[in-house]
């Protein structure tokens, strides 16, 4: 494997966003790119990352390899990179280590780190293609704000999508709270758009603790996409450049 990222910052932000949810992960490398799928310890949330080969320049992977990496170790090394550094990941065919090289485009500094790999026997789940009842696209910062506000009142949030809009509501010991967003197009600031695509109304309840955790990815993309269907996990997607993505799935709470 040899994969060169124009900005080390991308990988730094991705790892930073998921490291509190999952600890040890396999980075599955093949000629289409670098993928990661991992569940949190409670098997309630799942992270699915895809960094497509096109996100790297150049990208070369001659043989499929799984790099088992402890994310807190990876984060320690990624913190040694400047945000603007060029990052090159390298690994042999049957690797014991993954090699990370950081190059400054402005100076002649070149730093090199090896991280010891681990054998991770990871459960892999098949995620079926789903036609979601509701797909909501909104500013990532707005979603983060809603989750942070509501967790002050309750452990859970009900997300209800209708043709009127999407309503996030919660109830707790001190009282209730709700935030409703309607479809909204801002021609001058399209990054503030809220788009609700609905085939049928849907209402589901989720744990806010996990949603707040997912929102650590807000720095990766201006927009977040929420996909909901009755009685299936919520999909929270942050789209990255070159069709790469960071997705989170969250199992719903059921019954009341």
């Amino acid at each position: 494997l040899e994969a060169r990222l124009e900005q080390a910052n991308l990988l730094k932000k991705v790892v930073d966003a998921i490291k509190d949810l999952v600890q040890d992960c396999n980075f599955d490398c093949n000629d289409s790119g670098i993928a990661l799928q991992a569940m949190d310890n409670s098997h309630v949330a799942l992270v699915s990352m895809m960094l497509k080969a096109e996100s790297f320049s150049p990208f070369r992977c001659d043989r499929n390899i799984a790099l088992g990496i402890n994310l807190s170790s990876l984060m320690k090394v990624l913190r040694c990179a400047q945000n603007e550094d060029i990052l090159t990941l390298k690994a042999d065919d049957a690797p014991d280590v993954v090699n990370l090289v950081f190059e400054s485009s402005e100076s002649d500094r070149l730093s090199e780190y090896d991280i010891k790999l681990m054998d991770i026997d990871q459960e892999h789940l098949g995620i079926p293609e789903t036609e979601y009842s509701a797909t909501i696209s909104m500013p990532a910062a707005e979603f983060q704000r809603i989750c942070r506000d509501l967790i002050a009142l309750s452990e859970s949030v009900a997300i209800e999508a209708t043709k009127e809009g999407v309503k996030f509501s919660c109830s707790g010991d001190i009282g209730n709270g709700a935030v409703t967003l309607r479809s909204h197009t801002n021609v001058e600031k399209p990054e503030l758009n809220v788009d609700i695509a609905l085939s049928e109304p849907v209402a589901l309840t989720f744990s806010l603790k996990y949603l707040v955790n997912f929102c650590k990815a807000s720095g990766l993309s201006g927009t977040v996409k929420l996909c909901l269907s009755s009685e299936v996990p919520l999909l929270v997607e942050y789209t990255l450049a070159s069709n790469s993505y960071l997705r989170f799935y969250l199992a719903p709470k059921i019954g009341d």
């Binding site: 409670s42 098997h43 799942l46 789940l125 299936v232 709470k253 019954g255």
Partner: peptide, 14 residues
């Protein structure tokens, strides 16, 4: 109150 479900109830291991 509502019960938390787990992912295996929806996604099958491959």
């Amino acid at each position: 109150s509502a019960q938390q479900t787990r992912l295996e109830g929806f996604f099958k291991p491959t």
